[in-house]
């Protein structure tokens, strides 16, 4: 992957403003994500990375601006937003597996209820994906019996089962014990290598370096820098970017 933009962007955000009450969280952000591209959002906490990500599938409503996903303008009307969301995979920091369902049921639910797949087809797809994330034997386990890393891999499989056009990751490894981070990042890197379009909010700089086509650095409610991992992580030009990376290297 070289990240050369090809064709129409899959996600196109223009002049996004998001406020919570009087509090401005995003202040005029533009972001395009092209098919097959892996975009990694980094930046200090409170910069608005997660909020920007959550705007893409409408979990947060933007205050002004426009968002297009897969050629369609994002609208918050119930059936329209459901249709668009089924095309966007989302992986959360806290996994959010449904505790009353087995691993397989977690992955099958939306395939059946949203895509209308048969039980057999959904089950087959769930098993294939579980194999892919290295959890082939856990289909009938309940989430509570799995480690955090395993739960997150199931969550990735659950999102992939919908055959999404783009995958969003909201700090997918931040809630994990350090020794479990690698297994999740590995699955994500394989996805990236397989050509999946991904937008990832993370603090894992090594992942950004190895998997990102483009790194976007956010600070103070805005995008302050973007480019290849080398450009942004090694030679930041903005003052905010330099300050953030200095802070990182001090840790």
């Amino acid at each position: 992957m070289t990240g050369t933009p090809q064709g129409q962007p899959l996600v196109s955000m223009r002049n996004i403003v998001k406020t919570f009450g009087d509090n401005v969280v995003l202040d005029g952000v533009d972001l395009d994500v092209y098919p097959g591209e892996v975009v990694v959002l980094i930046g200090p906490s409170g910069a608005g990375k997660s909020t920007l990500l959550r705007c893409i599938n409408g979990l947060e409503r933007i205050s002004s601006g426009t968002i297009e996903v897969d050629g369609q303008q994002l609208s918050y009307q119930e059936s329209a937003i459901n249709r668009i969301r089924s095309r966007i995979g989302m992986v959360f920091q806290s996994f959010n597996l449904f505790p009353h369902m087995t691993v397989a049921q977690n992955i099958m639910m939306a395939q059946r209820d949203v895509l209308g797949r048969s039980a057999n087809e959904a089950r087959q797809r769930a098993e294939d994906l579980l194999g892919r994330v290295g959890l082939g034997e856990k289909a009938d386990a309940y989430p509570d019996s799995l480690s955090g890393g395993q739960q997150q891999r199931v969550a990735i499989a659950r999102a992939l089962a919908m055959d999404p056009a783009v995958m969003l990751f909201d700090e997918p490894t931040s809630a994990l014990d350090p020794e479990l981070v690698g297994e999740v990042l590995h699955v994500m890197r394989e996805l990236a290598d397989a050509g999946m379009t991904m937008v990832v909010v993370t603090h894992e700089m090594r992942f950004a370096r190895r998997a990102a086509d483009r790194v976007v650095l956010m600070a103070d409610k805005q995008i302050v820098e973007e480019g290849t991992p080398e450009q942004v992580l090694d030679n930041p030009t903005s003052e905010r970017g330099q300050a953030f990376l200095r802070q990182l290297s001090e840790e």
Partner: peptide, 15 residues
């Protein structure tokens, strides 16, 4: 239970 697919990813670890 980790498939071979994941085994090699361990070294990637945290920062």
């Amino acid at each position: 239970d980790r498939g071979s697919l994941v085994e090699s990813g361990k070294s990637e670890g945290a920062e």
